[in-house]
Every structure is written in C-alpha cells, then in structure tokens.
Design a binder for these strands. Structure first.
Length: 478
RNA sequence: GGCGGGUUGGCGGAGAGGUUACGCAGCGGAUUGCAAAUCCGUGAAGACCGGUUCGAUUCCGGUACCCGCCUCCA
C-alpha cells in the first residue's frame, strides 16, 4: 500500500497517515458560505482536497472514503442579500428569499466546481439541516460547564478549555494583549465566542432553549462532522485563514462536547491565493470569481492545472502567464490522446512514482512533472491525467465538439474550405518552387495566419490547423 | 505588539548534505524556399552574514526584506 505522509498543522510536522479505520477513511473540509459566486480563492481548497480525495480513494478503495464538505447557509450576508431583494420588491417572505438565494448559490457552486474537475464529496450537508444537532451540542456544552447563557446569547468559555490556542499556536493571554476588537460587555473573557445568538423578527431564527435565534459560525462544523463522521475522524481541511479562529473554536467545542475523542487527527491547511502578490480577499475587493475566469475563456482544467502547479502550503500567485503555460500543456495532451479510449476507472492502477509524489504531502507539482514525462506514452498519459482530474469526459467532449463544429461549418473531406485552401497552397508552392517566386505563397500564408490558422508545410503537403483565434470570416475571398 | 510562513537561474517552481529537477522563455543545430510544428543539444540559481561538516543552496544561528493570521474570509 502506498505510504501517505501529510503535514499536520496541529503538530507542525509531516506524519505518516494512518486512518482510524481503513475501511472508512473520513475527511471533513470547510465549504463555502453560500451568499455569492465562489471566487478563485474558494476554489483552491476544493481542488487541493479533491486531489487528496482521489488519492485516498485510489489507495483505500472508492467505497472506503467519506468526504464531507458543508454549505454554510446561515449567515448575515445571506440575510442581507435577501433583505435587499425584498426591499427591491422581490415577492416572498424573507425565509423564502433566503432559501432562493442559497439554492441559487449552491447551484452556481456546483457548476463552477464541476468545471474544475472536482468530484462531488460524499456528503454536502447544509447548516440549516443540522440546527437541532447544534442546539443539542450547545446544551451539552452548557451542562459540562464550557458554555454560558447571557441575555439571549450562548458563549463558549475559553478559560474552561486549557488547550485553547494549541492548534493555531497562540495563547489566550497574548491574544487579549494584541486584541483589536471591541469586546462585548457580557463576555466573561474577551476571547469567548458565540455559540448561539438571538434573532429579531427581521432575521431567520429557530426556537431554542434560549429563545428564538441562530447559531454562531463555528458550531455548525462541529455538529455536522460529529453527525456524519463521528467524534473522531481522520482529516480536517480548509484554508489557513480558518486556522484561527474558526478551527480553533471547532476544536474547543468538539473536544469539550465529546471528551475522550480525538476530533480531527490531521489538520490540513492550504495557503492563500494571491493576485498581484496580494492576498485575494473579500475585504480587499481584489477577488474575481471562477465563473468570470471561465467566461473569459480559461477552461476549468487550466485553472485546475495552475492550482496544482504550486504546492498547497505555499501562497499561489494567479497570473495569465501561468494559465497560458497550463493551457499549452493541456492542449498538447488533448491532441496526443483525443483518439484513445480511457481505461475504465476500476481497472486503473496508478504508477507508483505518481502515487509517491502525491503521497508526499500532496506534491502535486512533482505529479504534474511526472505526467509531462508521459508524453511518449499517450495511453498512460491519458489514464494518469484523468486520475489527476484532467482530460475528463466533459473536456474531451468539448474538444471533439470544437473539432466537429469546425468540420460542420466548412463541410467534410476534400470539399472543406480549409482542405481546398491547403490544396491551393500546395499547388502555389509547387509552382513557386519552379519559378523561385514565393511572393504569392507568402501572401496566402500571411492571410491564413491572420485568420488564426497555423500553416504547416512539408515535402508531403500542406496542413492547415485552426488555432485558438481562428476566424472563419477572414478566409472569405482567399 | 503577539504568533506563523517565505526569500532558488530571465520567469514559474520542485527534490536532495556531495552526482541533470522539470516547464516556459532564450540560444545553437536538424528540418523548411522562408517559416510554423516537431526533434536534438545548451548556458544560467540558491537574499545576506556566520556556524557545523572533508563538503551546504540543502542542517543550525543571526540580519535584511516580503507575506499571512490576530476582524468577515478558502
């Protein structure tokens, strides 16, 4: 069995991965808050942990890996969007408008992440489906003396959990010293965080022992991971910016609610995405969405390739140049493999070298280097690229559709416009060879290149290949 | 202020205490009427200062600079 070593944020070291139960390897990854289109930064953990999911499925068997990624559909930004729609005259109750908004966003998210070649997780729970589990967990925390109720709020008492701060390497005292936020007066300790907060009539709420309200941000992941994966599971992933406070608080809640269990054994955090060397973030406003990129003509697999060309624990700068290189490599692979048939997934056995690269804390860059070396073995390249999430059925279909639509618009075989031009070119060239006057040949060649056609000439004949910027209209009159 | 991470050739980006990363770009060659595509070959690095070592870009310490978290965020 392939050895997998993963960097564990909790211990700050690379460790050999040993699942609690090899027949049910369990991974939880923090998913999106569904109030708007996913930006490119949101896509990084999706692609990274999708690659890990694929590796785990290959090593332990498809049926033996459970991957949970949540949708946060309780959030004040969602409420605000719904409220704005209502004020703009949208029909329906606030709850209906909120539901509409989250449904719509989840649909976008699925479409965008599918385009990146990411497999759907085993389960995608929504916070609103687990309010009962959250309330139960909060009640348990109060009973055990780890949480307290104050004026409709329930707060977690960080001083009741001595390990608080261990995951993110901070001490409560240091954090208080450097605190930049105003502290709510009802908190026993400035670092105490909200488990439950009251909702007024203009906000969505659920009945609870503490009145009508809604959960704090962190409790949902604790409740859903417990319900779907148990008190102890193998891997918890997410962006490094979630390490504190989100994951720290998750650890505190879960470990206090289920003493004796491990919660997540391995914590994995992907680094941030940069744009122009600055972190892409909502507050800086320098983010763009996956959809925008797709619409600009960057195929999803190109985005995936760029993502995987940088190790997940390093910041990654998104640049047009990287996208260009990725596209070049993928086009080349597609061209080499478009006529081959992929091996059925169940028969595929990945090469040990590729598995070693991925098993070494997801060295995806090395894995891509391995794929590149497979140029001379197209069948092997096709199967291994597909294992990595490239050259998918969709991408191959799209490629073939593009080829077909080209034939469609010009007619097939010798009557095709380009074939005709190729013949013309060939004849002109043959004449030029004799007359030594190449001007007419060069003129036609220039016109073809201007139309986005690549001109390949050899002794055997002339081959015309339409490129990315191919414009059939420019062929008129040639 | 507290905590964490980074600094590799023109660009991107890995591994390894000593032996070619790789890709892109460049250069040279084959090929071509000239090109394109393809193939072959090739130069170029390890922020700075110390230490450990027979030997460090790789380990340790310091300096500088950059970045992130501590506030919604993947």
């Amino acid at each position: 069995m392939t050895a997998i070593r993963l960097y564990n944020t909790r211990t700050r070291s690379k460790e050999e991965f040993t699942p609690f139960d090899p027949r049910n390897v369990r991974m939880y990854v923090c998913g999106p808050t569904v109030y708007d289109r996913a930006h490119l930064g949101n896509a990084r953990p999706v692609v990274v942990f999708d690659t890990l999911f694929r590796l785990l499925r290959h090593v332990y068997g498809e049926e033996h890996v459970t991957y949970v990624r949540n949708f946060t559909d309780v959030d004040d930004k969602i409420n605000a969007t719904a409220l704005a729609r209502q004020e703009a005259g949208a029909v329906g109750t606030l709850e209906e408008l909120i539901h509409q908004r989250t449904e719509e966003t989840i649909g976008w998210y699925h479409a965008d992440m599918d385009a990146l070649g990411a497999l759907r997780p085993t389960a995608e729970p929504r916070a609103t489906q687990y309010i009962g589990a959250m309330v139960a967990m909060i009640e348990g925390l109060i009973e055990r003396g780890h949480a307290y109720e104050v004026s409709g709020h329930v707060l977690f008492d960080v001083r009741s959990y001595p390990e608080y701060g261990r995951l993110s390497g901070r001490s409560v005292d240091d954090m208080i010293a450097g605190a930049r936020v105003e502290v709510a007066p009802y908190k026993r300790d400035p670092m105490d965080f909200v488990l439950w907060k009251p909702s007024d009539a203009s906000l969505p709420g659920w009945d609870s022992p503490w009145g009508r309200g809604r959960p704090g941000w962190h409790i949902e992941c604790s409740a859903m991971s417990y319900e779907l994966l148990g008190a102890s599971f193998d891997i918890h992933g997410g962006g490094i910016d979630l390490q504190f406070p989100h994951h720290e608080n998750e650890v505190a809640q879960s470990c206090c609610a289920h003493p004796g269990a491990d919660f997540a054994r391995v914590w994995m955090h992907n680094e941030m995405l940069l744009v122009e060397s600055k972190k892409m973030s909502k507050s800086l406003g320098n983010f763009f969405t996956v959809r925008e990129l797709l619409e600009q003509g960057y195929p999803g697999e190109v985005i995936r390739f760029v993502m995987l060309s940088t190790h997940y624990r390093k910041p990654m700068d998104w640049t047009a140049e990287k996208a260009r290189e990725a596209k070049q490599a993928l086009d080349d692979w597609m061209h080499l493999t478009c006529d081959l048939h992929p091996a059925p997934a169940e028969d595929f056995q990945a090469d040990e070298k590729l598995l070693e690269a991925l098993g070494d804390d997801l060295n995806t860059h090395l894995a891509l280097t391995y794929l590149r070396a497979l140029r001379s073995q197209p069948q092997k390249l096709l199967d291994h690229a597909r294992f990595m999430g490239f050259l998918s059925d969709d991408a191959r279909a799209e490629y073939n559709r593009a080829q077909a639509s080209f034939v469609m618009s010009f007619g097939a075989g010798s009557t095709s416009r380009l074939a005709h031009l190729a013949q013309k070119m060939h004849a002109l060239r043959a004449a030029a060879m004799a007359s030594k006057d190449f001007a007419p040949v060069d003129a036609l060649k220039s016109a073809l290149i201007a139309a986005g056609v690549e001109v390949r000439m050899s002794k055997e004949g002339v081959e015309l290949v339409p490129g990315a910027g191919f414009d059939p209209a420019k062929l008129e009159g040639l």
